[in-house]
Structures are given as structure tokens and as C-alpha cells.
Design a protein around this nucleic acid. Structure first.
Length: 497
RNA sequence: GGGCCGGUAGCUCAGUUGGCAGAGCAUCGGACUUUUAAUCCGAGUGUCGUGGGUUCGAAUCCCACCCGGCUCACCA
């Protein structure tokens, strides 16, 4: 954008601002007491119509000017607010000298309008303005009304323009809020207590991820941003909070793509005296409840798919499934080289993998996840790739763990929590040694403070982590995580300096 | 990190073989008291992503870089 041209645009509007002040009008007043939103106004009018009553109430609405059609001694203004739009009619013979104020108004300005409602010749519900107020004079032009704003970069960098120009952006924000609110209610109704745990932590443990690091000056101490809420929540279960959950941001120092943002939101819950089978039932109930709340149905359209979230979701045995699709039984390949060879023979690129769990993860990602379209659970993971999950009582090589998948996307990870402190210590030590061996910053870390906590005794507990962003994508039909995060991470640009 | 595509007016987009930088909307001036992508008359609008190079001449060709999208790799 040309500096000069931009300044010319703004100069015109600054002149109009001055002109308003000359007319004794404050272009930036402190408040406006509206009586109706656009939708409430419409509903009120239709209700009086349905009673065959005349609408003679004076109401006050407020919003941003999104369009105007001047007709000389009458003007129509499209006013946009959080609920939608309402047309305002301004007539010179009604407004008298105040009609001149319209000369100083632009698309983008905020106004309040007072008057009564009627239908125009073409049937449009319209507010006949008897008075109006300038609420905020804007200085910059908005995106064009017809094509709107489509430039993806501008939509993400200047989210407010996206929200102004694209109705879908607002709908997604509202639905995300509804989704989180529904989850809160669901959990609360089941007796879960919501908590907040530290984001700045001395050890970023409880998951496989590379953490962000930072430094606290006063304490002269290096800290990390949490990669999960898991270990703090389990400390609370040790403390006797039998049902606990947290909805919060976690941070992982990794790449950005359609399904990943370095900061994202999870809902983790822990419920004493339950195992992963109970958690599976809860996930089905939770997600289908949210789906119904947002879409009015447990069947949801996502891209080309019709997704049916109604319980129960299929439980797919991980080992059997891998055997079916690749002919590999991971119990037959407990050594790295053996698994690597078997996968290589199945045509999988194993050049980037070094650890056994990394290889198996790659096998699952390549061969299984893409086939999981309808909601389902993969159950019973190898202990080697599940350092926080309890071993199956019937098979010590298997952990009581499951992950939920929809459209090839992992939406949750859950297990019967490992509460044997001796076993947990051994598993952490194994992770530490793997990190040394493979120089892998993402391997989980030993958290001594957590181990001491569970040495005091954590009851049998079923735990869950749900990716709120991905769930929102699925239930709002958005193909990219950047569409459901208001300010996604982008590379720096000139505007940031 | 690799590959492909893209970046031109506030917004949406054209721009031919290398030959004066274009349209619609928005903006500015004028007309218009039921319009709604209002209409009609008139006007202005540019660091062609950035920096080099080739050329008499570059939005256009070449090189490097920046930003975005898709995709592969990596990553839950």
C-alpha cells in the first residue's frame, strides 16, 4: 500500500472527524444504551406482525456501517452487529439538520440509531431512524463488500478484518465458544472440578514434545512452557480431588501445518476409580453431546464426509489392525532393527526414525490413521510408546491406552494412569536413557516432584487429553487449525518490525 | 527443510510477444425520499513483495531473498 495514498484516505476521514467536532458531535463518545440487537429487533417486529399488531415501539440499535445507499433526501444504511444486520433508513424530513451528519460518516464507522421498525416495499425489516449517534469514527477503509476479504494472509494477520468481512469467521468463533462451554457443563455435571495449573514449569514433562524455554530473572531460574497438563492434574488426584479437569493452552516447539500450531488448547481430565474403558465411554458421550449442541445432530458434515458421532464408536485393536494392513506383528519385532526391516519391506520410509516407538508411530501414521474416517478408538498400545500408561493386567507388553480418531486426525489420547510409583520411575528412567541414546529432545522427561507425589499414593485413575482445536475443526467444518485459532502463529512480517 | 503455486490501487482481480499501469467495488465532486451489489454524470487513485541483473526499454526475462498457500518430510 502506498504511504501517500493511505495518508490521503486517512486525511479525508480525519477531516470528517474534525467536521463532526465542529458540529458539536463527539466522534468517540463513551457509551450507547441500545435496547435491541439486530436479531432481537427483527424477532420483536415479526412477533408483533404475527399478532397483527402495529409496531410502534421506539428501539435503539448499534453497530458498524457496512453499506450505504444515498438517495438524496433519504439514505439506507446497513448496520452490522454481533447478531447480524439491520437496515436503517434515514430521511431528511425526519432528521432535519442531523441529516447533514451523514456527510461525515463512512463505511466502517460505528453508530447507534433510534426509531421504530417497518417493512419496506420489498419486505425488508428496516429501522426508520428518528435520531442517531456517532459511536466511533473509523480512519481506515474496510475490505470491499461484495467479494469480501479472501487473502489468506490478511485474514490471519488482521483477524478483525476477517471477522468484519466473513460471516463464517464469526460463526466459527461462536461455535468454538459454544463447544468449550458445552464441555465445561458436561464435565461439571459429572462432578469434575475445573482447575488451572502452572504454564511455567521447571521440567516440561508428561508428553513427547520439544518444549519452549524461558528464564525467570528474579529467581534466576530457567523455566519451560508446559507441553501438557497431565502431571500436575495427577498430583491433584493424589491430593484427593477425585474428578479434575483443565482446559488450557499447551506449547510445543514444532512445525506449523494444517493440524499443528505451536500453542494449542487441550482438555485433560482425570477420574479416580475408573479405567480407560470408562474414559472411552465418556469421550463418546462428550463428543456426541458437543456435536449435537453445535450442529443439532450427531451426524456432522466435514468436507466430503458425513461423520456419525453417535456412540458407541468402534474399538479397534491396534496390534490386530497393524497386522491386517501391513502383515507386521509388533510383538515379533521387539528390536529396533527387526521392526525397521519389516517396515522397510512394507514400503515405508524409515530413514528418519531411530527409536522403536518412533518407528511404530510412523507405521500407525502411514498405514492406519488415513483409513480412520468415522469416529473410532485405536486401543491397546505397546508399553514402550506409552510411558505414563498402566500395563494391562493380562499382558505386560500392552498398555491400557487408546486414541480417538476422526478423518485421519487424532483427537484424543487416554489411558489407565500408571500409579505404581516404582514402575513409573523405571519408565521415566527408560525415557531419559532413550533421549540420551537418540539425542531426541522430544522424549519424555523424568519429573522427580511428580514421582514423589505418586509415591504418596494415586488411586486407580482414568485419564484423558482432548485436542480442543482439532475437535473444533471437525465440528465447525474447517480444514485448517489456523481457522479455529484466532491468532495462529505466522512468520514475522514488516508490520511487526 | 524439499517441490509446486501465488504476491499488481483500500478490497477482488485482469495485464497479450518485453513497448504509456487497467477494470469493478470502495474513495472524492454532482443528481436522486422505499434502496438493498441502488442507479446516473464526472474525477483521482500504484515502491507491480524486496534487492540485484539483462535490455534502448522490465509488472513481464534471469538471480537472490521475504511473505503466504498447497504438498512431502518432520512433529501429536
Amino acid at each position: 500500500m502506498s504511504q501517500q495514498n493511505e495518508q490521503e484516505f486517512m486525511k479525508v476521514r480525519l477531516d470528517k472527524t474534525a467536521s463532526l467536532r465542529q458540529k458539536g458531535i463527539d466522534p468517540y463518545p463513551t457509551n450507547y444504551k441500545r435496547t435491541h440487537t439486530s436479531k432481537e429487533a427483527e424477532t420483536a417486529f415479526e412477533s408483533s406482525e404475527s399478532r397483527n399488531a402495529e409496531f410502534n415501539q421506539t428501539i435503539k440499535v448499534a453497530g458498524r456501517i457496512m453499506g450505504r445507499r444515498g438517495m438524496g433526501k433519504a439514505s439506507f444504511i446497513d448496520l452490522s452487529d454481533i447478531d447480524g444486520r439491520l437496515q436503517i433508513m434515514m430521511r431528511k424530513n425526519v432528521l432535519n439538520e442531523r441529516y447533514e451528519i451523514l456527510d461525515d460518516l463512512d463505511i466502517g464507522d460505528w453508530i447507534g440509531a433510534e426509531g421504530t421498525l417497518f417493512r419496506t416495499r420489498t419486505g425488508q425489516i428496516t429501522l426508520q431512524s428518528e435520531n442517531f449517534s456517532v459511536l466511533c469514527k473509523s480512519l481506515r477503509p474496510l475490505p470491499e463488500k461484495w467479494h469480501g476479504l479472501t487473502d489468506v494472509e490478511t485474514r490471519f494477520r488482521q483477524k478483525y478484518l476477517d471477522l468484519i468481512a466473513n460471516q463464517d469467521a464469526i460463526i466459527t468463533v461462536k461455535n468454538r465458544s459454544l463447544l468449550v462451554g458445552t464441555i465445561r457443563t458436561f464435565m461439571s455435571d459429572r462432578g469434575f472440578i475445573e482447575v488451572e495449573t502452572p504454564i511455567l514449569v521447571p521440567i516440561a514433562a508428561g508428553g513427547m514434545a520439544n518444549p519452549f524455554s524461558t528464564h525467570h530473572n528474579a529467581l534466576n531460574r530457567d523455566l519451560f512452557l508446559r507441553i501438557a497438563t497431565e502431571l500436575h492434574l495427577k498430583r491433584l488426584v493424589v491430593g484427593g480431588i477425585e474428578k479434575v479437569f483443565e482446559i488450557g493452552r499447551v506449547f510445543r516447539n514444532e512445525g506449523v501445518d494444517l493440524q499443528h500450531n505451536p500453542e494449542f488448547t487441550t482438555m485433560e481430565s482425570y477420574e479416580a476409580f475408573t479405567d480407560y474403558n470408562d474414559v472411552m465411554e465418556m469421550v463418546e458421550q462428550l463428543v456426541s453431546t458437543v456435536a449435537k449442541k453445535l450442529n443439532g445432530s450427531e451426524t456432522v458434515t466435514y468436507g466430503n464426509h458425513e461423520l456419525d458421532f453417535s456412540p458407541p464408536w468402534p474399538r479397534i485393536d491396534l496390534r490386530q489392525k497393524i497386522l491386517e494392513v501391513s502383515g507386521i506383528d509388533f510383538f515379533d519385532h521387539l528390536e529396533v532393527d527387526s521392526l525397521k526391516n519389516a517396515m522397510s519391506q512394507s514400503g515405508i520410509d524409515v530413514s528418519q526414525q531411530s527409536s522403536w516407538s518412533g518407528l511404530l508411530d510412523k507405521l500407525i501414521s502411514d498405514k492406519i490413521e488415513p483409513t480412520l474416517v468415522q469416529p473410532c478408538f485405536l486401543v491397546d498400545y505397546p508399553v514402550a510408546m506409552s510411558p505414563l500408561a498402566k500395563k494391562s493386567p493380562t499382558d505386560g507388553r500392552i498398555a491400557e491406552r487408546f486414541e480417538g480418531f476422526v478423518c485421519g486426525m487424532e483427537i484424543c489420547n487416554a489411558f489407565t494412569e500408571l500409579n505404581d510409583p516404582v514402575d513409573q520411575r523405571a519408565r521415566f528412567e527408560e525415557q531419559e536413557s532413550l533421549r540420551q541414546q537418540f539425542q531426541d529432545a522430544e522424549t519424555d522427561r523424568l519429573d522427580e516432584d511428580f514421582l514423589i507425589a505418586i509415591e504418596h499414593g494415586m488411586p486407580p485413575t482414568g485419564g484423558l487429553g482432548i485436542g480442543i482445536d482439532r475437535l473444533t475443526m471437525l465440528l465447525t467444518n474447517n480444514p485448517s487449525i489456523r481457522e479455529v485459532i484466532l491468532f495462529p502463529q505466522l512468520r514475522s512480517d514488516r508490520m511487526e518490525g
